[in-house]
């Protein structure tokens, strides 16, 4: 029986699925703000070398047609998009001296895995 949460080849990322597979963009934003930079960097540096392979895998599928393990891989990549500025721009969860992101309300999001026209 296969207990893998992710497609074959991404075993090294299994350890992140419990924390970083999240329902939507708002949850990802909250997760970045609530995480330590140590945890964010551990996730970021594990994801980055697998990024091209992950996108090559995801290119094979239309949204809505992903198998569950592929959807989890997509959600890990969406979490990578959320934390990238924390690592690459700010070296902090928060925008440097920024307006608090906790003060914004999302009224509309793009669903993670729904066909788009």
């Amino acid at each position: 029986m296969n207990h893998a949460n992710l497609p074959a080849g991404f075993e090294a990322l299994e350890v992140f699925t419990s924390d970083w597979v999240l329902p939507d963009a708002v949850a990802r934003m909250g997760k970045r703000q609530a995480s330590t930079m140590e945890d964010i960097k551990r996730f970021y540096h594990a994801m980055l070398p697998q990024g091209v392979a992950a996108l090559e895998y995801l290119k094979q599928f239309a949204l809505g047609a992903l198998p569950p393990e592929g959807e989890r891989l997509l959600k890990l990549m969406l979490a990578l998009a959320e934390v990238a500025p924390a690592v690459e721009w700010y070296n902090n969860q928060r925008v440097t001296d920024g307006f608090s992101v906790q003060r914004i309300r999302y009224l509309r999001q793009i669903p993670d895995n729904t066909v788009q026209a």
Binding site: L63, L74, P85, V101
Partner: peptide, 17 residues
């Protein structure tokens, strides 16, 4: 494709920050 969904999220997150 599902890969392009990542590109959308990157655009939004960067712009928001």
């Amino acid at each position: 494709t599902a890969a392009q969904r990542f590109g959308q999220e990157n655009t939004m997150v960067e712009f928001r920050d």
